[in-house]
Nucleic acid binder design. Structure first.
Length: 220
DNA sequence: ACCCAGGCGTTCT
DNA sequence: AGAACGCATGGG
């Protein structure tokens, strides 16, 4: 008998507690910028670039657009792919500026599915980045499926179907579209993978995985 | 000197 | 529809 998503989430919470301020930012726009910058990049470098943007006072759509590509390229250089990411950030900024009066929170007035389609049309915004913005910038119930999540599920032997959307839907159903529970679960998975298991396919020394196996055996 | 990091878009088969 | 590849820097 395999563990359910809720049971796994409970075990994670028992192991690591309830994450507070895991994706902290001063503004929703800062979250969105971070979501772009973190693509294939460690978070430490993202923070460095975000701080650089902050120091220049550019962490708002209008200021970012005014600064221009060359300036932004220099500031986000540390996150890698800096020419692409600079373009992506400017496109995002223009979009928020033009469609939402420069305030990302104004997006909240439109339905989630529609926003997701809009975000996916932006260059540099794929499923994971779009869901990160919806979940962490707008507090909408949109689960983020990242490399950590797929590795974690595979290691656990928890089959939620194939493909991004299947896994995403599984979590959203399990948590009844509760954004607080969805963000907590995602954060806990990342915390767990970073702190103990990282890239090891089958981590025998992982306390959580061991306790999961014990639980699973007790159910049979 | 590798290998990986909280992807995405383009360009092939 | 899916695989392969480019993007580019920083840290272990």
């Amino acid at each position: 008998m395999a563990l359910s998503i809720s049971e796994v989430a409970l075990l994670l919470e028992q192991e690591y507690g309830s994450p507070v301020g895991w994706w902290s930012a001063e503004t929703p726009f800062e979250v969105a910028v971070g979501a772009i910058l973190t693509q294939r990049t460690s978070w430490a470098n993202v923070e460095s670039s975000i701080d650089a943007l902050k120091r220049e006072g550019l962490l708002t759509p209008s200021r970012l657009v005014d600064a221009g590509g060359a300036k932004v390229e220099m500031l986000v250089r540390r996150t890698g792919f800096y020419r692409q990411k600079s373009k992506y950030l400017l496109e995002l900024a223009s979009y928020v500026q033009d469609e939402y009066g420069g305030d990302l929170l104004n997006m909240s007035r439109r339905p989630q599915y529609q926003l997701r389609e809009e975000l996916l049309k932006l260059r540099g915004v794929g499923p994971e980045t779009a869901d990160s913005i919806l979940l962490y910038a707008l507090s909408m119930p949109s689960f983020v499926v990242d490399a950590y999540t797929t590795r974690f599920l595979a290691r656990l032997g928890l089959d939620l179907g194939q493909g991004y959307d299947s896994i995403k839907q599984s979590f959203e159903s399990a948590f009844e579209n509760d954004s607080a529970r969805l963000s907590k679960a995602h954060a806990l998975i990342v915390i767990h993978c970073k702190s103990r298991c990282r890239t090891i396919p089958v981590c025998n020394g992982c306390p959580l995985l061991c306790s999961c196996r014990l639980e699973a055996e007790q159910k049979e």
